[in-house]
């Protein structure tokens, strides 16, 4: 009995040691593994907790945040971006509109997080098509969190959702319109809603079957002030569906340019463009 329990303990110890070894990022099972060190997991909920705990940058219903997209493999630029954002006064948070990684590998997400964690304010992400490659979706969930989530800050509901329909073979379920409808319907205490996704609905990588239902759903909710995206690697702003809703796409990180968005009232916003120098 005793020797068997000792044996169990020894095997248990070996398993614990083994999982610790597997846990250390050097002893990697596969570049496709969905592993993040304990202190780097689930950044979305950690950053939302930080956001909830910090005092807002402005009084009243004003919210001010940084928007950029496509950090994929631009680690040098990300470092310079962080230095630049840290010099901006009165920012609530930073939003990265998808394509955190280039190859959908967990270690890329770790490299980006290592840089973004030096931001003085919380950062939030939405999943991009590159983050879904291979086992990337699982790696994204481990490093950041849910593919669809929403949060309220300063009277604003931010809805962050997966619109990378092509990565699901246009299966008619991405973006998840039922979930989006529920988030849009919940307007208690909300002055306005902002949607953040990676692929904008006027791009060929958005599920063509869902373009109409998606834009109609947003149209039915007048509190939607802005639709923010990235993916096409250039800044665009306009009303492509001629329905009064402004769709905006962010600069990719490699352009060394980002936006600071200030929102107030129901639909007022100000867009500032910040360029930053190459440090290296």
């Amino acid at each position: 009995m005793r020797s068997s329990s000792q044996h169990v303990r020894r095997v248990g110890g070996a398993l614990v040691a083994g999982s610790w070894l597997m846990g250390c990022s050097l002893l990697e099972s596969s570049p496709n593994q969905a592993y993040a060190p304990a202190d780097e997991q689930y950044q979305t909920s950690r950053n939302l907790a930080r956001l909830a705990a910090q005092p807002p940058s402005h009084h009243g219903d004003t919210v001010r945040f940084v928007l950029v997209g496509d950090s994929q493999r631009f680690y040098d630029e990300t470092e310079d971006f962080v230095a630049s954002v840290n010099q901006q006064p009165r920012i609530d948070f930073v939003a990265i509109a998808g394509d955190i990684s280039d190859f959908g590998l967990g270690r890329e997400m770790h490299w980006i997080h290592r840089r973004l964690q030096k931001l003085h304010v919380p950062y939030l992400t939405v999943i991009g098509n590159h983050d879904e490659l291979g086992n990337g979706r699982a790696a994204y969930q481990k490093h950041f969190g849910p593919l669809n989530y929403s949060f309220v800050y300063q009277g604003t509901r931010f809805i962050c959702l997966d619109t990378n329909g092509r990565e699901y073979g246009f299966n008619g379920r991405v973006p998840d319109l039922e979930w989006l409808g529920q988030q849009l319907a919940d307007t208690t205490g909300i002055a306005r809603t902002v949607v953040i996704s990676h692929v904008p609905p006027n791009d060929a990588d958005f599920d063509p079957k869902l373009v109409q239902p998606y834009t109609q759903l947003l149209r039915r909710h007048p509190q939607v002030a802005l639709h923010l995206g990235a993916h096409i690697h250039r800044f665009t702003a306009g009303q492509p569906f001629h329905d009064g809703l402004t769709y905006l796409t962010a600069y990719p990180l490699k352009k060394r340019r980002y936006h600071v968005l200030t929102l107030w009232g129901q639909r007022y916003f100000r867009l500032e463009t910040i360029s930053y120098a190459k440090v290296r």
Partner: peptide, 25 residues
């Protein structure tokens, strides 16, 4: 290391060679 880690290293100055290594026993 692997091809994709190496591509990442070669296109960035702030990534160190140690960061793209993997240990096997």
């Amino acid at each position: 290391t692997n091809d994709l880690y190496l591509v990442s290293l070669l296109s960035n100055k702030t990534l160190s060679p140690a960061e793209i290594l993997t240990l096997g026993l």
